[in-house]
Computed example of a mutant assay.
Amino acid sequence: MNKESGKSYTVKEATLKLMQYCAYRDRSQKEVEDKLTQMRMIPAAREEIIIKLMQENFLNEERFARSFVRGKSRIKKWGRHKIKQELKLKEVSSPVIRLAMTEINENDYKSTLYALAEKKIPLIKETNPFKKKKKLYDFLSSKGYESHLILEVIDDLTS
């Protein structure tokens, strides 16, 4: 049981709490809606709070998506597929996802993919070269990279 579930909030208290929640790091609208539901706010109050957060720029879906893309590609080294999938799970709209994906620099993206592959190859304990390539492919694919890029990297690094 959550600590919030027993307490009831006024709209003003909930708004302040959500302002702090959004100021800590960018949040998606779904995360904010989930938080308000968790706080047991009625739908009319949730809508009012979300509108206020947007007006005061605490909640900005595009800013959230852009920072999410930057963080996941640079820090977690995720590929485009995985990033898009996660944004869809957070109910970010397709146009905003397309805009946010422009945060990925193509050269950085490819060099990250190469670096991941170069680091992974020595760790694969497989003597059969085909199985080794398959394991590398599966690993890079699970990180969300596109197949044509993975195949390009595997060809470059294993030939």
Rank of each mutant, 00 (worst) to 15 (best):
1 M>Q: 12
2 N>H: 13
11 V>P: 06
14 A>M: 01
19 M>C: 07
19 M>F: 05
19 M>P: 04
23 A>M: 14
27 R>D: 00
28 S>M: 03
30 K>P: 01
31 E>L: 08
32 V>N: 00
33 E>Y: 05
33 E>M: 07
36 L>D: 00
37 T>R: 09
39 M>P: 04
39 M>S: 03
41 M>Y: 05
42 I>R: 15
44 A>T: 11
45 A>L: 03
46 R>H: 14
50 I>M: 14
51 I>T: 11
52 K>C: 01
54 M>L: 10
55 Q>C: 14
57 N>A: 05
57 N>G: 06
57 N>Y: 06
58 F>R: 04
61 E>M: 06
62 E>C: 08
64 F>R: 03
64 F>S: 00
68 F>G: 02
70 R>F: 08
70 R>Y: 12
81 H>Y: 12
81 H>N: 12
83 I>P: 03
90 K>S: 15
91 E>N: 10
92 V>T: 05
93 S>D: 01
93 S>Q: 06
103 E>A: 08
105 N>T: 05
107 N>M: 04
111 S>R: 08
113 L>K: 04
113 L>M: 06
113 L>T: 02
115 A>C: 13
118 E>P: 08
119 K>H: 08
123 L>Y: 09
123 L>S: 15
125 K>F: 07
126 E>P: 09
130 F>G: 14
130 F>A: 14
136 L>N: 05
136 L>C: 10
138 D>N: 13
139 F>I: 09
141 S>G: 13
142 S>D: 14
142 S>H: 15
143 K>L: 00
148 H>C: 11
154 I>Y: 01
154 I>P: 01
155 D>P: 02
156 D>F: 09
157 L>S: 07
157 L>Y: 10
157 L>P: 07
